[in-house]
Design a binder for these strands. Structure first.
Lengths: 333, 333
DNA sequence: TTGAAAGCGCTACCAA
DNA sequence: TTGGTAGCGCTTTCAA
């Protein structure tokens, strides 16, 4: 077992006290004479010393670790989110302990584990947590921020795209471009993203007195988008537009429509939501509503800092507006 | 500041010693009377106690944390890899501390930080590390496994697709299907994946005495694939096949070819490497060589376990063969 | 089977 | 500016 060098050994080697070594390696090592510092650094270097952050966590009683729980890693939207978070946190000298929620697992199942790691804060993407768990987090003083979910619970903060608004924008755009038989392809019913997008969409249609639309159920995957669109094509309904609750289903739908020998957008318009990288790929050229991920991440980090600085501050809920990105998958009729 | 419950408080509440509480919460709490155990568990439950894993790390001097360094998160291949790793490690009660290598940063830059976290082991994807750093890891006794890179250094283990073989398979297939003017679209020259794929490809052609092929340089992104393919179309070279060193460039190339009014595969065949999810999407239907990610991850975890059980065991290097996945982007000529 | 006590490697307070 | 020292919350001998 290769021995790890500790501050005591460095102290001995440098002929100073262990406290002094500690001071030298503290962020704000205030009171160390330049000469002493150099002596310590030299000794440390010679011995190959690196402070043990675990021990530091113990005494400081803060870990500088942010827990991120991702339910949905392989959906194209999230790697980008994760990467951005990592970059931001690394720049803030915070590390990320990452957890995934496996198939058939609930966020609630793994949260106790996450809390054991004494994370300074917790970001949960694409999932909600029970109010029991929210309470538990509150008890341990762990700030929680839901990313891409809205909340009802008053203990937790949330940052989310303005999905209601986005759904509304899409309805508005499809109507304006003359579509009359719109199909809404839904994501899982228990996701706030789907529900909000759907609600915004429906509300606008209702306001306009439009009743000729229908809803089909899918589950946010390419495969479901493909399958449900295929079914739709093979039934006797003939929509002139499909609003898919996310881009990845829209891509599946486009492939399905083409597989039936139809054209997008000439025969059917397709519109998505998210603006994932593939939306701009030539083969799809998908009109969609973007999520301002950068802004969402900025807000998340702001809220986090706020909560870390003032643990008693109120939880914040922020909605971030997206933009209609007009490409080529919707036709004016 | 919400006070966190410690084992001492549980002990008092249950009327036992702190050591006993500790025993109850140890994995293999061997010597605790059933009655005592229940009393402790009851007290713990009432107080909402959760063991502090950071303190546990201190005394056990092992963290059960695996560090993963990902250079390339947003490339479609990696989220899947990461997700699989997370699931496997969570099942083994190991947690993942995730690091990304930002633009312009080297793995070497962040490794000292990673090591400070006393990770039990380190997985580095898509990047190599200097032998200095490899030495440093060896000194601290931290096993390192490179994922998707081959190694020259004798201190580190590696698991990698058999890229030479894959490149060879592709060359063989393209020749067998009658292609005569093949272009190799390269990834970054400093990646072993590119170099190995290219070498396998070139070797086969050389063996067959085929000299009519060319090489263009891209960088593993959709955009580069698109741009370089466009250039190619607009020049007076007329390849009948493009072998793109990864799928994402292949997708870009296909979009570019179509944007020029040409057909894939009728005018030009395109073949990729990786078998990312998008390769099977209807719009591309890309012929490619799969990476057997599941197998690669299995091997990685096996090596890891081995190194953790016997720290002195030799580093292992494993190559995992992929398979030619024939779809519709290559035509027999 | 249980308890007492000595660390683990740091930080932070108090004195010098 | 430095050193001494008391924890941080646990694990792990060693004795009882």
């Amino acid at each position: 077992m290769p021995k790890r060098i500790t501050s005591i050994e460095v102290a001995q080697h440098a002929g100073v006290s262990q406290s002094t070594v500690s001071r030298v390696f503290s962020e704000d090592s205030p009171n160390v004479a330049e000469k002493t510092r150099n002596r310590v650094l030299k000794a440390a270097h010679e011995l190959g010393y690196r402070p043990n952050v675990i021990a530091r966590m113990m005494s400081r009683r803060e870990t500088n670790i942010i827990g991120i729980v991702m339910a949905n890693m392989t959906s194209p939207f999230y790697p980008y989110v994760l990467d951005k978070f990592l970059q931001r946190f690394q720049a803030l000298d915070k590390q990320v302990l990452l957890f995934t929620v496996a198939q058939g697992q609930l966020v609630d199942d793994i949260l106790p584990l996450v809390l054991q790691y004494q994370v300074d804060a917790l970001i949960i993407t694409s999932a909600t947590l029970s109010s029991d768990m929210a309470d538990e987090c509150a008890r341990t003083g762990t700030p929680v921020i839901l990313f891409n979910r809205t909340v009802s619970d008053s203990h937790v903060s949330a940052v989310c795209a303005d999905n209601v608004k986005g759904g509304r924008m899409i309805a508005e755009y499809l109507i304006k471009t003359g579509h009359q038989h719109i199909v809404y392809m839904a994501g899982p019913a228990n996701t706030s993203t789907n529900n909000d997008r759907e609600q915004g969409f429906k509300t606008y249609l209702r306001e306009q007195g439009i009743r000729d639309w229908m809803r089909v159920q899918a589950d946010y995957t390419y495969e479901s988008g493909y399958a449900v669109a295929t079914e739709l094509m093979q039934s006797d309904t003939t929509p002139d537009a499909i609003f898919c609750a996310n881009d990845i289903m829209a891509v599946g739908a486009i492939d399905a429509i083409r597989a039936q020998g139809l054209q997008v957008p000439d025969d059917i318009s397709v519109i998505g939501f998210d603006d994932i990288p593939m939306a701009s790929w030539g083969a799809y050229n998908l009109t969609t509503v973007s999520q301002d991920v950068k802004m969402m991440i900025d807000k998340t980090i702001t809220i986090l800092q706020q909560k870390l600085d003032q643990p008693d501050s109120q939880p914040a809920v922020e909605l971030v507006e997206g933009q209609l990105i007009i490409r080529g998958s919707v036709k004016s009729r």
